[in-house]
């Protein structure tokens, strides 16, 4: 019985045996006392519960060794090494020309084996690599958009495109409409962050199409304005307190002013939407394009203490002052409804 009690304590029993022990424990006070005594006597083993940690390159080394072994076996099986005991340690220079070719073939075999076996060994590393590649692709995309923005600004008194104060063009994503109408957008795909892997590019309407929809079909208009700006967020401008006018960002302002970025989470994307990073890069941060043309991946929504997605009143609306920069997703109006 004591052996089964030990098994019960350490979860070594199969289900049937464990149930038998439980029945015995319910019926017998002696069994319960024994169990308590055993539990106490085994307790010191718990002092050494921390599992040893393997070296970080253990998996790689193991796969390499397996691959080498597999290659050696293959070499001896196919006679690539001319009946000689094959081994990768034989120097290339000591072999005749034909031998060199053979060893190169062995090298290829080893490389192929490692690739086949080891390619998928560390998904976390692959995920990180993929995220890193997406960040770079996204940054490049933003730089291309910058070219269009600066061209547009050159024709518009050095001012960036932005939403109107009211009417059909009073949405953040109008920036894309302006670029599209000015033929400054390489492709509508540029509205998508590469990290999102969205297959279809958004439909970017002309300003006229927006105006027409605004008049005729408000529901379709609302759907369209939500999609036209893709995965990014755009500067909403700021309200000049003295005149109460909506001002756009000028290319002559501080070169570190953010003008475009990965879009922030939307309210329907769950609690904390107004505090989290963009969903485009797995919540790790966002690429931010600045007036000077540089793109920075930042791991916080705050640039110099300013939340780039909310104004000083903690609303996703135009800034309250020239240095209150707010970038809103496509459907965002600059002013309160």
């Amino acid at each position: 019985m004591e052996q089964d009690l030990i098994g019960y304590l350490l979860n070594l029993l199969d289900d049937d045996s464990a149930q038998n022990v439980e029945r015995e424990l319910q019926q017998s006070a002696e069994a319960r006392r024994k169990l308590t005594r055993l539990r106490r006597s085994m307790a010191p083993l718990a002092y050494d519960n921390a599992p040893p940690v393997p070296p970080s390159d253990l998996v790689f080394k193991t796969l390499r060794k397996v691959a080498e072994t597999a290659c050696r076996k293959e070499v001896s099986r196919t006679g690539l090494a001319s009946g000689r005991q094959a081994g990768p340690k034989v120097p290339l220079s000591s072999s005749p020309a034909s031998g060199k070719a053979r060893w190169r073939r062995i090298d290829v075999l080893i490389a192929a084996s490692i690739a086949l076996i080891g390619l998928l060994m560390v998904p976390p590393a692959i995920v990180l690599l993929r995220e890193s590649q997406h960040r770079v692709a996204c940054a490049n995309n933003l730089r291309e958009l910058y070219t269009g923005l600066s061209t547009w600004a050159a024709d518009h008194n050095n001012t960036l495109p932005g939403p109107e104060r009211e009417g059909p063009l009073a949405r953040a994503g109008v920036v894309m409409v302006r670029l599209h109408d000015g033929q400054l957008l390489g492709s509508p795909r540029q509205a998508n962050c590469p990290a999102n892997q969205v297959r279809n590019p958004p439909h970017i309407p002309s300003a006229r199409e927006l105006e027409r929809l605004f008049e005729c079909n408000r529901a379709s208009y609302e759907q369209l304005v939500r999609r036209m700006g893709g995965c990014y967020s755009y500067h909403l401008g700021y309200v000049r307190p003295e005149t109460n006018s909506l001002e756009r960002v000028s290319f002559e302002c501080d070169k570190l002013t953010p003008i475009l970025a990965d879009r922030p989470p939307r309210p329907e994307e769950g609690p904390g939407w107004n505090a989290r990073n963009s969903p485009n890069h797995a919540g790790r941060g966002q690429n931010v394009l600045k007036v000077g043309g540089n793109v920075q991946f930042v791991t916080s929504r705050y640039l110099d203490g300013d939340d780039i997605y909310l104004n000083r009143k903690r609303r996703c609306r135009a800034g309250e002052a020239p240095n209150d920069n707010v970038l809103g997703p496509s459907e965002t109006p600059p002013l309160s409804d």
């Binding site: 040893p52 940690v53 393997p54 998996v59 397996v66 076996i117 390619l119 060994m121």
Partner: peptide
């Protein structure tokens, strides 16, 4: 299917190494 070998090694990395380290007493 050779490429399943990597995931198998990784799956047992901690557990089996922990066992061997305890048993052998040497890294």
């Amino acid at each position: 299917q050779l490429d399943v070998f990597g995931p198998l090694v990784r799956r047992y990395e901690r557990e089996l190494y922990g066992y061997l380290r305890r048993y052998l007493g040497d890294d």
